[in-house]
Design a protein around this nucleic acid. Structure first.
Lengths: 191, 191
DNA sequence: CACAAAACCGAGCAAGCGCTAGTTAACCTA
DNA sequence: TAGGTTAACTAGCGCTTGCTCGGTTTTGTG
């Protein structure tokens, strides 16, 4: 049995699975729950995916691919180091908000992936974080920040990723301002 | 059947459960695995806990109670706002390292708690975060930082909590320095 | 040393789990 | 309209899960 990984139907199912995995967790979401939400019977699920873990993989992969795309686009049209740091942070927030389900799942359900799946996704994550390495290095060379670059990167990404725990886009704080504050924090500028 | 919540044996079991929940996740850790690691049979587990979820609750509660204790101690003997921010960050890192298992579980397995358990633990979390509210307000009144205090708190706690993802205490970076960098970041000071 | 309390054992139940097998129905294309 | 492809269905297998319960052993104490 071979599956069509790019089928339109499959993409719909992945989005539905992302929602359930995000809300209830991977392990507590049964294939029957997934099938119900998809409007099919549980057996039919395995026409689209080889097993349950493959659905989890597909959810996380889709979120990461989209994140990489958005970040590359933002950096391609931006020149100065400080602005590049800003658009990267802003892009990070965008993906965190747009594909919130997928990214929450990536953070919380990582350990339910097989080792093989993890290895593949680590490559995607590294490809994404390479953007951060580049931009932080640019800021460093421009004299905008001092010290351990990987430490700056980890602290910045930590502060950003933690926003899924508390940030509500319908509140007073908008993502643009949030990204600005984060840049000011990393570059030690009053704002 | 009434259980002794403060029994010594129970505390040992909670520490063992924390380790398993941290390494494999709550849902994928079976009561049989727990019992094995504890050196008893699965049925005997329910002599100490009413149900599996109660073990999860006990793990998280113990971590939070310890964190509150450490933070209070650190603040009790420290005066100036900047130093208080430092010792609070340093205490946060200490608990994150000493009770790593419990805190990882608190972050990742929150959703497996019953609503009732969550409500109880939210009170503990609020009690802990009240320290951060206080100290950040002190820094603000001393003119050390400007702007939205809760935003500063969320970004700082995010950067700190994310350390469980990457920080290895056996590496070059020691916790003291890490806490210093974090304070500098929050207060926008070069370091 | 008696005896209550605490800790543990061993067997197993009822429910739910991921997944499979075999089949049917709708749709496209030659 | 025949043949193939895709997507869905029904039914249920084999196993694991959290948890129960009656009985037994160990431990602490007056």
């Amino acid at each position: 049995m071979k599956l069509n990984k790019n089928s339109k139907r499959r993409k719909e199912l992945v989005a539905i699975a992302a929602r359930l995995f995000c809300n209830q967790g991977y392990e507590t979401t049964t294939v029957r729950m997934l099938a119900d939400a998809m409007g099919i019977k549980s057996g039919s699920l395995f026409h689209h995916f080889n097993d349950k873990q493959e659905i989890l993989y597909a959810v996380i992969e889709s979120g990461m691919l989209h994140a990489i795309e958005i970040a590359q686009q933002a950096l391609a049209i931006t020149q100065t180091p400080k602005k590049r740091l800003y658009v990267l942070a802003r892009a990070h927030l965008s993906t965190l908000l747009e594909d919130r389900d997928a990214h929450v799942v990536a953070i919380y359900e990582w350990r339910s992936l097989t080792q093989e799946s993890r290895n593949l996704l680590v490559k995607l994550r590294d490809a994404y974080e390479a953007n951060w390495c580049t931009v932080i290095n640019e800021c460093s060379e421009a004299g905008l920040l001092q010290g351990d670059q990987s430490l700056h990167r980890h602290l910045a990404l930590g502060a950003l990723n933690w926003t899924v725990q508390w940030y509500k886009p319908e509140g007073q704080l908008n993502p643009d301002t949030l990204a600005e504050v984060l840049v000011a924090m990393v570059l030690r500028e009053k704002n």
